[in-house]
């Protein structure tokens, strides 16, 4: 069965300028209970890879540079 791609707006926004993933930080990726964040190596910043968020906020609370903003997912906003 062939697959199609659908685009989704994701709730987590990372400020790439503030993010220090390029220096080796992975805190948000480490703490997310749903494992939905990842590091974009080329960009040197974290991003939300899967739209599967509990809007629970450990990523935002533990980020050392306040680079993360978690919004409420659009479907329930």
């Amino acid at each position: 069965m062939p697959l199609a791609k659908i685009s989704m707006s994701v709730p987590v926004v990372v400020n790439a300028e503030a993010c220090i993933a390029g220096k080796g930080c992975t805190v948000c990726v480490d703490v997310c209970p749903l494992d939905v964040l990842a590091i974009d190596k080329a960009l040197g910043a974290a991003y939300m890879k899967y739209d599967e968020c509990w809007y629970c906020l450990p990523c935002e609370a533990d980020c050392p540079t306040n680079a993360i903003t978690v919004n409420i997912p659009y479907l329930l906003r």
Partner: peptide, 15 residues
């Protein structure tokens, strides 16, 4: 399924 239809918008931690 939460009434929002969002799979991970559950009361419990969806992990």
């Amino acid at each position: 399924l939460p009434s929002s239809g969002y799979l991970f918008g559950t009361y419990e931690n969806p992990t």
